[in-house]
Computed example of a mutant assay.
Amino acid sequence: MLFRSFQAVALTLLLLQHAGASEDSYRMPDYGDHAPPAARPPADVRALLAGSDDAPQRDAPLKLLLVAGVKDHGPGEHDYPAWQKVWARLLAKAPRTEVSTAWEFPLPEEADAADVMVFYQKGDWNDRRAALIDAFLARGGGLAIIHYAVNGNQAAPEFAKRIGLASETGKIGYRHGPLDIDFGPGAGHPIARNLNRVAWHDETYWRLSGDPRSINLLGTSIEEGESTPQFWTTQQGPGRVFVSVPGHYMWTFDDPAFRLLLMRGIAWAGGRNVDRFNDLVTLDARIGQ
């Protein structure tokens, strides 16, 4: 009990230290003119991290490839290049983690060297992408797909066969604003551990192409009066896929709850312990006093 009490005090001090930072090298550099939502309370972060494993001391090495593209929204939104730059350094701080980057779409040799490819860009789907992604998943590679990377343009139904659900620009529903994500559907999944209902200020998508029965649903939001998938996983043979629809605003990537969820998804997609990135969850994150 004394050891657990010491751990709780140490974590509290760590959270407060990170929360006091101003110009942070592991934060997104630009939120635009938008006022960010309130910082996450330290008690909430402690609750999310409860029951963590000591995975970094014994988890297998992991090679990540972060794939970004041209920025396509205003300041503080869809800043794929800034995300790639910051998260490449952030994720590389984890033990036995090697991080590389690719622009727009990986070369075959870049994909061959990766255990997990993380896509944050305006998505697309074509024969070239299909050939590389299918081969990658068939050998047991993992994918993490963030926000607009779910876009498949007119080939969204084909893209959905690989990632579960996909969007076609002009046909989906979307909304910016407060999100109330219910993780009840993901209860029992390691990615959703300690998550129940989480509030963010970001963007949802719905009316997606694909078969909802093909996904393992983690979290939902109510849109147009119906429960809609916002976080899920799926498997393609030995390959694993994690998808996060939220990720529109840059402040979301600095929120410890979103970091925890996304980092767990990346680790899970690579077949690793979901707690391997826990030390990064609070690093320069937006945590209140």
Rank of each mutant, 00 (worst) to 15 (best):
L208T: 04
R128D: 15
W125F: 15
V118H: 02
A199K: 14
I222Q: 12
R162G: 02
G140W: 07
V118F: 06
K171V: 03
F119V: 02
H201D: 09
L195G: 06
V118E: 08
F231I: 12
A155Y: 14
V118W: 05
R197M: 07
Q121D: 05
Y148H: 14
S227R: 15
G219M: 02
W232Q: 01
G140K: 09
P190K: 04
A149P: 08
Y205V: 06
F119G: 00
A135N: 10
G188D: 06
A199V: 01
G219D: 05
I163H: 09
P229V: 02
A199S: 13
N151D: 15
D202F: 03
D127L: 13
E223A: 15
F231Y: 15
V198N: 01
I222N: 11
M117G: 11
E224R: 14
I145A: 03
T233L: 04
G210I: 00
A160R: 12
W232G: 01
I146S: 08
R139V: 11
R213S: 14
F183N: 01
D202T: 03
H189Y: 08
K171S: 14
I191E: 00
Y148R: 09
R197I: 07
N194I: 08
V150K: 05
H201V: 08
R213F: 01
F159W: 09
F119S: 00
D182Y: 10
D134Q: 15
H176G: 05
A144Q: 05
R193Y: 02
E168K: 14
D180E: 14
L208C: 11
L217V: 07
R213L: 03
A166K: 09
R129M: 14
T228P: 01
E223D: 09
W206M: 07
E158T: 10
R128G: 13
T204V: 13
M117W: 12
G142L: 06
Y205W: 08
P229Y: 04
W125I: 07
G177E: 12
P157N: 06
A156Y: 10
T169V: 12
L137W: 03
R193I: 07
D182K: 10
G164E: 03
A187Y: 02
A155C: 10
I133T: 13
I163T: 10
G186N: 10
D182F: 11
K161Q: 15
